[in-house]
C-alpha cells in the first residue's frame, strides 16, 4: 500500500521536535531575564547628576560616613541631603553646569531624586549598623566604590550570596577599625584572622543562617 508520508516527513518531524525543545529553552531564558534583579550587576545606574565616588572618595578623600551618616547607628545607611553636597559646592564649582540639578534642588527645597543602586526586596530586613559592628567592610558588599566613576552594583545580593558569608563569616571579616578602609587587603591567613574576629566579636555562627535574622 502507498506510503502516507513523504520521505521528507522524517526530518521535518525531527526539526519540529528540536524546535520545540529550543522554544522551551528560549522561554526559560527569557523568564530568567525577566525576573533577574534590576539594575543588572556591573551596569552603572543613571542618576540626576553623574556623581563620581572615585573623585570624591579616592581623589578628594571623603570618608563614607561624611554622606552616609546613619550607617553605624541605623539599619539604613542614608543618602545625603542636598545640603551635604552644598557644604563644598557652595564654594567649589559654584557655577558648573553639571551641578545645576543640585543647585536647583537646594533652591526649590526638593530632593534630588537619586536612583537606588542596591535594592533588597521588602521582605528582607537588612541592618547596616550590626554588619559594620561585626567587622563587615563597606567594600565587601558594595565592591571597590572608590574606583567607580559611576556607581554600579558589584555583587549579586541574592539570598544565596548572603548565605555564603553568613554560613562562614570568617572568610570575609575584617577588624572593626578597618571597616571603612578602601585599601585594606585581607591577609594571607584570612581564615585564622576571621576565626579570631568571630570569637572576639561574639558572633554565634550557628544562628547566623536562621531565617529570623533577615526575614520577619
Amino acid at each position: 500500500m502507498a506510503q502516507i508520508f513523504r520521505r521528507s516527513a522524517d526530518w521535518l518531524l525531527k526539526l519540529v521536535v528540536a524546535g520545540g525543545v529550543l522554544a522551551v529553552v528560549a522561554v526559560a531564558l527569557a523568564w530568567r531575564g525577566y525576573v533577574a534583579s534590576q539594575p543588572p550587576m556591573g551596569q552603572p545606574v543613571k542618576q540626576p547628576v553623574p556623581f563620581s565616588h572615585k573623585h570624591h572618595v579616592k581623589e578628594v578623600g571623603l570618608d563614607c560616613r561624611y554622606c552616609h551618616t546613619a550607617v553605624e547607628t541605623s539599619s539604613y545607611a542614608g543618602i545625603p541631603p542636598t545640603t551635604t553636597c552644598m557644604t563644598c559646592h557652595s564654594q567649589l564649582f559654584r557655577t558648573a553646569p553639571m551641578l545645576a540639578p543640585v543647585r536647583r534642588s537646594l533652591a526649590e527645597g526638593r530632593s534630588l531624586g537619586w536612583n537606588r543602586v542596591h535594592l533588597l526586596a521588602d521582605f528582607v530586613y537588612f541592618d547596616h549598623s550590626i554588619h559594620l559592628h561585626q567587622g563587615v567592610g563597606c567594600v565587601t558588599c558594595h565592591g571597590p566604590v572608590d574606583e567607580m566613576q559611576l556607581t554600579y552594583r558589584a555583587e549579586p545580593l541574592t539570598m544565596r550570596w548572603c548565605l555564603e558569608c553568613h554560613r562562614e563569616p570568617e572568610r570575609h571579616l575584617r577588624p572593626r577599625e578597618h571597616v571603612f578602609d578602601m585599601d585594606w587587603k585581607p591577609p594571607r591567613d584570612q581564615l585564622s584572622l576571621g576565626r579570631e574576629l568571630v570569637a572576639r566579636y561574639g558572633i554565634d555562627t550557628s544562628r547566623l543562617a536562621d531565617c529570623s535574622v533577615c526575614h520577619r
Binding site: 521582605f123 554565634d204 550557628s206 544562628r207 536562621d210 531565617c211 529570623s212 526575614h215
Partner: peptide, 14 residues
C-alpha cells in the same frame, strides 16, 4: 516555617 536557635517558630512569608 522553621525553628530558629533561640526557640522561635518562624513563619517566612516570602
Amino acid at each position: 516555617t522553621v525553628h530558629d536557635s533561640e526557640g522561635l517558630n518562624l513563619q517566612v512569608y516570602n
